[in-house]
Amino acid sequence: MIQIIPLDQTLPGMVLGEVLMSGSNMLLPLGTVINTSHIESLRHCGVSEIAVLSPSERTIAEVDEQREALRGQVERLFRRAGSNITMKALRRAVLEYQLEKLK
């Protein structure tokens, strides 16, 4: 989701949610990770507010990564479990538990 926030509330690390234009000039492309010098020059250009991606979207990639890491961790713990039915059910429950915790 894109949020419009005042420039004074913009923090380094936020990600630009749409192309930032000044008239027909592009100041910054979509997806720019804002740093302090960006904020400074935008202020000089008279920009008062910008569109940034809300944190939840910024971290989707991170969440995917964590989910994969959890899967790997559970696989590792069960690497000698074989095909026993109870162990399979246990592995499923543990994976569900870990993934639910992530939410």
Binding site: L77, F78, R79
Partner: peptide, 16 residues
């Protein structure tokens, strides 16, 4: 073991 007490790459869940 599931909750990784103590954890570590060698750990294995015992047979249930």
């Amino acid at each position: 073991h599931v909750l990784e007490f103590p954890g570590g790459n060698d750990d294995l869940v015992p047979f249930l």
